[in-house]
Nucleic acid binder design. Structure first.
Lengths: 351, 351
DNA sequence: GACCTGATTGACAGCGCTGGCAATTCTACT
DNA sequence: AGTAGAATTGCCAGCGCTGTCAATCAGGTC
């Protein structure tokens, strides 16, 4: 129980600051909002008063009066490392503009998704929303937001919408380059583990792989292309199917590290010597990539930077209120190839 | 670009609902806030109007008028799986009470932490804050919140404060039980990898291990107790030191799964046959636990439930405004032993 | 039927801030 | 010095809702 004399300091109001600085509240407001048209000397006086009183403007009041909320929403479906990295980047960018991030889990499969979104934006008056996949591909989410006039940034959407900006990475190129590394090491028969259908990443990574194979005149054995849904468990199945083929590949390209890890497990169970008997590469540079032996060669995603960028797009957009500036922003962030111990030269009999 | 005739529907106000229902705004307010003293028939009429207009009360206005914010803060230091699971649970609980979660990364090492916290609570007027470790052990954070009179729930703090509730799991018992499993399989010489000093988990897990060893009359070889900081990289070092001892242990208890995974890697590099030559157990049931071969025996933490519970403590506390009800809530959540392939019976020469 | 008690409901002010515009002060010229 | 025009600053209303308290209504009492 808190004693009655507890030192709960009530926070200062804009009026107290105004009095102290000898100006009107409106002028203090101008300073807070960094508006121009305030004499430098006046601004300094106000700043000093703010400092002395440890004044922090009340978000709710600012929001109510100014018809904004200072809130950006981050809607996600699945928690995980990706989310937490992404949100950390987004929060960082928000802070620079004195905004705040509301994270909201939303089930992609929920039949009442539209209502859920609508409730959120109705209550919060979000200034913008960042949609993580697979939410970035659901028409109902997009429509609900668009109807409410709320700017949304789609992260790695499968289908880009002409009226919505997105943040992407060039997975296709990265997948191609990683495949080239495999080919350069003499691999000819390379298996591929697909991610979940409908994900942009699934499509792009496979296309990059195919690009490299084709460029080197190698054919893709469709028996060696299996779908793993991005899950470790599916990856196990998938790897078994691949490695039990009579003519085993000398390398496996998994669409993400979880599945690559699964391939490592299966290979291990089959007593294959890694990486000599089998090279394995993944994608994402997930934590697991460096927690297994051999460590996975993979592609690092700049997840935190993507979070920053997504928030930035929302924030930069603000002055336009409704509608995005032309051209629709579609920045791509660079991926980084990470070569580790999981790849080796192809065994001679495969050359 | 949005066309000028875009269907941006302005949202309904409480007054519009009041008119439609033929009551005063205040009565609508009563219904929204679920206050008693509204005739059932009136309430129904208001509800209908709310439904028809798709009305959502404006958070900012409610906050301003009611001197609350409907916001709970979740302060964290390191992003990761733990965080995202935890926050998902917390958000779920918040929704049930129409509150929202603000996630805020804070650097535990920042010398200006106090000011950072103070700015956050000053602007947001948070109704409560959840502190994830290691933030839950920093006096400056606790003091700043207490001074502002903001209820805080400490998650797994090293040192419990008499004036602050906390959410814990009984790591000690779980560690003891897991060790018992090892002993039951004939292991006598068991190594232990400590987590980061100053973490409650580090201390409790070791104590549980020691409890079991002592209860079975086994001695702990201090050479086999190494500190790994909860990091995979440190775990590698640590595992090497342990496995290079002349008299190698037959089992390793790692304080978390990342370090356990490191032990698996090292063992693999040393060509030890797992799990026959060496049993390894971890803690947390992190994703990596099932992504390596053999899969780790470990202890599952109910992270999402902890998030729910933490939010619940803040929310339940509300009516008391200042100070917590007696007794100080300190719920413990149950941990679950997960036995997987990484443990086997001790080799005969060790019995 | 007058009157009392408790249950419902409404009137009104104001939470802390910002938008719009008027008032004031400053600058640069004639 | 006088004045238009620009740069600053202040006044006022009101954002959408809830706290306070007064008003009204329903039911029961003597």
């Amino acid at each position: 129980m808190r004693s009655p004399s507890a030192p709960v300091r009530e926070s200062a109001t804009i009026e107290m600051v105004a009095d102290r600085a000898g100006v009107s509240p409106k002028t203090v407001s101008r300073v807070i909002n960094n508006e121009h048209g305030v004499r430098a000397e006046t601004r300094a006086r106000v700043m000093a008063a703010i400092e002395q009183l440890d004044y922090h403007p009340n978000l709710a009041a600012r929001g109510l009066a100014g018809a904004r909320s200072f809130l950006i929403g981050l809607f996600y479906d699945k928690p995980g490392d990706y989310l937490s990295e992404f949100q950390t980047g987004a929060v960082q960018r928000c802070r620079e503009s004195n905004l705040h991030l509301m994270v909201e889990p939303l089930e992609a499969g929920n039949p009442d998704l539209g209502r859920a979104v609508s409730t959120l934006i109705g209550q919060l008056r979000l200034e913008g929303v960042i949609l993580l996949p697979p939410l970035s591909d659901l028409p109902i989410v997009h429509t609900t937001l668009a109807t409410a006039g709320i700017p949304a940034v789609h992260i790695a959407p499968m289908h880009q919408r002409p009226d919505a900006p997105s943040v992407d990475t060039d997975d296709r190129t990265a997948a191609r380059l990683l495949t080239v590394e495999l080919i350069r090491r003499g691999h000819r028969r390379i298996a591929f583990m697909l991610g979940r259908a409908g994900h942009r990443a699934t499509e792009q990574r496979y296309l990059g792989f195919a690009d490299a194979m084709q460029a080197s005149g190698l054919s893709i054995d469709t028996q060696l292309v299996q779908t793993g849904n991005f899950e470790f468990a599916d990856g196990l199945e998938c790897a078994r199917r691949i490695l039990l083929r009579p003519q085993r590949p000398s390398a496996i390209f998994a669409s993400n590290d979880d599945m690559a890890a699964a391939a490592v497990c299966v290979a291990r169970q089959m007593d294959l010597a890694l990486p000599d008997a089998l090279s394995i590469v993944g994608f994402d540079d997930a934590p697991v990539a460096t927690m297994i032996w051999p460590q996975l060669s993979t592609v690092r995603q700049p997840v935190r930077a993507m979070g920053r960028l997504a928030a930035d797009l929302i924030i930069q957009h603000k002055p336009h209120r409704r509608g995005w500036p032309q051209p629709m922003p579609r920045p791509h962030l660079d991926l980084e190839l990470i070569l580790r111990g999981s790849i080796a030269s192809a065994p001679p009999h495969d050359a």
